[in-house]
Computed example of a mutant assay.
Amino acid sequence: MMEQITNYIKPELIVVAVVLYMIGAAIKRTKAVKDKYIPLILGAAGIAFCAVWVLANCPFGSGREIAMAVFTAVVQGILVAGASTYVNQVVKQLHKEE
């Protein structure tokens, strides 16, 4: 499953998944936010981080280019957030005793 997700993530944005994983772990440790909201926070942060990357790397000459940039930022943000959550669950399951 993880391989399928990473096939669609731009290689230069894989680092965002790592950053989101660390942010998620930090949020969980603070206990300031309920666990059920952490994936939503990571999704929003992923979209924001990817939007910054898109703004820095894409031309904005037409409405079509703007629409594509927004689409890319949202999709890549969701994918990197999904990857970070998936890694978190794999780590949890590997340490779980049955």
Rank of each mutant, 00 (worst) to 15 (best):
Y8K: 07
Q4E: 15
F49N: 00
M22Y: 14
K10M: 09
G82A: 10
I41L: 13
N88W: 06
V15K: 14
V19Y: 03
G63S: 05
K92T: 00
G61T: 06
K34Q: 14
Y21Q: 04
K10F: 12
G46N: 00
V19W: 02
I66M: 07
F60K: 09
L20R: 03
A83E: 02
R64G: 08
N88I: 04
P11H: 06
D35Q: 05
K96N: 09
S62M: 11
S84N: 09
Y37F: 14
R64S: 09
E98Y: 13
L40W: 08
L13G: 04
Y37T: 06
T85H: 06
N57D: 06
G24E: 00
V54T: 10
Q89N: 15
V52D: 12
R64F: 08
E3L: 15
E3I: 14
G77D: 03
I38N: 04
I66Y: 07
M1H: 13
V90M: 13
V90S: 09
K31A: 14
Q76S: 05
A51Y: 12
R64P: 00
D35R: 02
K31I: 08
Q76D: 06
E97V: 11
Q4A: 13
V33H: 05
V70E: 08
L20D: 01
V16M: 08
A67F: 10
T72Y: 11
M68V: 06
E65V: 04
L94Y: 10
T6P: 07
A26N: 13
P11L: 09
G63L: 04
A45V: 12
P39W: 02
K34G: 04
S62Q: 09
V70N: 06
Y21V: 03
C50A: 07
V19D: 03
E98H: 11
L20K: 03
A73W: 02
A26R: 09
Y8E: 07
V91P: 01
A69R: 07
I14K: 13
E97G: 12
V87G: 01
I66P: 00
Q89L: 14
A17R: 00
Y8P: 00
C58D: 13
Y21W: 15
P39I: 02
A48Q: 07
Q89S: 15
K96F: 12
A56W: 10
I27R: 00
F60I: 08
I27Y: 02
N57Q: 10
A25M: 12
I66F: 08
V54F: 02
V33T: 06
K96R: 13
Y37V: 04
Y21R: 04
H95C: 03
I5R: 03
Q76V: 05
A73Y: 03
K10Y: 11
P39H: 02
V19M: 09
K34S: 14
A44G: 14
G24W: 00
I47N: 02
V33Q: 05
H95G: 14
F71H: 05
G24K: 01
E3G: 14
L13C: 10
K31T: 05
I27Q: 05
V19K: 03
Q93F: 05
Q93E: 14
C58Y: 15
N88S: 15
E3P: 09
V75M: 11
